[in-house]
């Protein structure tokens, strides 16, 4: 298994897009290939950083504006 070909599969793996069989094959490869394992860990970590940094809560004022819409204009 050539590692350069695995990079694309690792990307789909961290997106949660690999089927069960592909996932198991890749995980088996990762357990024996330090380079791909590091690549996967780094990508997973970067993804979690993105999620942690950019998950936001909408301002209360916006929620109130939407509540007004749903209670009034939306039903007209």
């Amino acid at each position: 298994m050539r590692c350069s070909q695995e990079a694309s599969r690792i990307q789909d793996y961290i997106s949660g897009e690999l089927g069960r069989e592909d996932r198991m094959m890749l995980e088996s490869h990762l357990s024996g290939c330090e380079e791909c394992k590091t690549c996967a860990e780094t990508m997973l970590f970067f993804r979690s950083r993105l999620r942690d940094l950019f998950r936001v809560t909408a301002p209360v004022e916006l929620r109130n504006r939407i509540a007004t819409l749903s209670a009034g204009g939306g039903k007209s």
């Binding site: 990079a7 694309s8 690792i10 990307q11 590091t38 970067f46 950083r49 993105l50």
Partner: peptide, 25 residues
């Protein structure tokens, strides 16, 4: 295109990523 550059070891990569500011990303 498909992956990150191959790091020499995982730790420098992670500490680099962990140190990134929101503004940078």
């Amino acid at each position: 295109q498909d992956g990150f550059e191959s790091p020499r070891s995982p730790d420098p990569q992670k500490s680099f990523l962990a140190g990134l500011m929101r503004e940078d990303i």
